[in-house]
Amino acid sequence: MDLAAAPLIDDALADFVRSEVSITVATCDDGRIPHLARGTGCRVSADQRQLTVLLAAPASAEVLADIGRNARIAVVFSLPRTHRTLQFKGTDAVITGIEASDPELAADYVDRFATGLEAFGYSGAVIRGVLHADGADLVAVRFTPTFGSLQTPGPEAGHVLRS
């Protein structure tokens, strides 16, 4: 990675990935069999070069195993009310310990995401139940996005984000 290049993530994108978006983490095993997990929050590094996605470890076992084997990751962030969608990929994903504030970050994210879906008639209680992870179950996955693209349905879908 060229450290002199600007990061793919600017202030607006950092705000977006930390908002009430749907977070889907995708990996694959060595046989290219895909695995998915639901994220429960996201942090952006101070220099905006890395993303850290929070996951509930029990529901993310296959994703975490894939990351341990090959470090490849794709994360999709999508805002249900507008369908604005971004995808970031990386090849250096690592499982890290959580920070002291991560359980609160995850709880706040889950609440905001569920509240956003309630406006469409979905049960906030069900969403909160599916995504809930207490501090003991949380795990963090950090990676450097080396590729990013707009995935919002429409004419800009597939547009590559540039540093």
Rank of each mutant, 00 (worst) to 15 (best):
L131P: 12
G97I: 02
D15T: 15
S60R: 08
I98S: 05
C42Y: 03
A140K: 08
L36S: 10
A4M: 13
T40H: 00
A106M: 07
G124D: 08
H83I: 00
I33K: 03
G121F: 06
T144V: 07
D111N: 15
S149D: 10
A14F: 03
F147A: 06
E20R: 15
L13G: 01
L3Q: 07
D111P: 00
D108L: 11
R128E: 06
A106E: 05
E62C: 12
V21A: 02
A93K: 04
V126Q: 02
G68I: 00
T152L: 06
A6G: 09
V17K: 03
P153M: 05
D111K: 14
A12I: 08
D2F: 06
L150H: 09
A65M: 09
T152R: 07
N70Y: 07
A57N: 03
D111L: 13
I67P: 15
V110H: 04
L105E: 05
R69Y: 02
S149E: 11
S123V: 01
V44K: 02
I127T: 14
G39M: 03
S22R: 13
G41P: 09
T152M: 04
G97M: 05
E118N: 04
A106Y: 06
I127D: 01
A14P: 00
I98M: 08
P145D: 09
A65F: 06
R18Q: 15
A93I: 08
H83T: 02
V63S: 13
T115P: 00
T82Y: 10
A71T: 12
V160R: 04
Q87I: 12
A14L: 02
T152I: 10
V139M: 11
A46S: 12
V75A: 09
L131M: 14
P153H: 07
A119H: 11
S78R: 13
T27H: 05
F77M: 01
G124R: 05
T152N: 08
S123W: 06
L131S: 10
T24M: 12
L161V: 08
K89C: 09
A5E: 14
E99S: 09
R43F: 01
T115C: 11
